[in-house]
């Protein structure tokens, strides 16, 4: 394994797709230099800067915050910026666009479905009641925050969707990450839109499409544990269904 200064070489295989071309996807390989600190994202940048300027991929922050550089590395969803070539030596390293999403070009996927669903879960606090300025801020006690804080760490990188075979088999499924985010806002005592979000949870495309594979939580780079959010909502959905038979309920 190379130390910080030693330069070694490794082969990177990329699944490429050109929407303007007449062929389907193809694999292209490059052998590139790398050191102990070279990430998969830096490898892709090296290829784009020095070997093939047409290679297309998304990235922004380079520090696992923006959630843009998700790719499959040897078949497993990873953020390119926090995945290091040293862990795949001697190679080759196969890089592919995030699984279960349509490929737009090379490593760029079509995230339109995810973004539309993101809007549908109302990922913001809808205040229970309007407060005047002089009434002070909306308060969230720390003990309440602790119950859902991990679910608020989601960076929308979509790795959990690339890990979820149920989403791959039926893209109508709301999916792990967005259910975690939905659960985060539903658990907030300041929020008043739980009933609207629960309609999504109960629906055919909601939590019942999940079969508890659990891989979503394994690949999450922020330890959000979306599988836990989905399964907690299965309980909530089932209780809600049974509660309909109680007197005084609709």
């Amino acid at each position: 394994m190379p130390d910080g200064r030693t330069v070694e070489h490794i082969t990177i295989e990329v699944l490429r797709y050109d929407p303007a071309g007449t062929e389907g996807p193809r694999t292209q390989s490059w052998t590139i230099p790398y050191t102990h600190e070279t990430s998969v994202l830096e490898a892709l940048q090296h290829i784009k800067d020095h070997l093939d300027g047409s290679l297309t991929f998304r990235w922004s922050c380079r520090m696992a915050i923006c959630g843009s550089c998700g790719v499959m590395v040897n078949g497993v969803p990873h953020l390119g910026c926090r995945t290091f070539l040293r862990d795949f030596a001697p190679g080759p390293v196969r890089v592919e666009a995030l699984a279960h999403f349509p490929i737009e070009k090379d490593l760029v996927v079509d995230a339109e479905d995810f973004v539309a669903k993101l809007a549908s879960i109302k990922p913001y606090i809808v205040p229970k009641e309007e407060r005047r300025l002089e009434e002070g801020p909306y308060v969230q006690p720390p003990e309440e925050l602790e119950r859902f804080e991990s679910f608020s760490h989601c960076i929308n990188c979509m790795l959990c969707y690339a890990a979820c075979p149920q989403y791959g088999l039926d893209p109508k499924f709301l999916g792990p990450g967005l259910t975690a985010l939905l659960h985060r806002y539903n658990s907030d005592s300041r929020d008043g839109a739980k009933d609207e979000r629960m309609e999504l949870v109960h629906s055919e495309e909601g939590v019942w499409s999940c079969t508890a594979v659990g891989y979503c939580s394994e690949v999450c780079p922020k330890q959000v544990d979306p599988a836990n959010a989905v399964n907690q909502n299965k309980t909530a959905s089932a209780l809600d269904w049974f509660a309909r038979f109680l007197p005084g309920r609709k």
């Binding site: 797709y17 929407p19 303007a20 996807p25 279960h100 349509p102 737009e104 075979p165 088999l169």
Partner: peptide, 12 residues
């Protein structure tokens, strides 16, 4: 836009 959808055959 002409996206490419990968098959799910043998996903498991």
């Amino acid at each position: 836009r002409r996206t490419y959808v990968r098959p799910m055959d043998g996903w498991w």
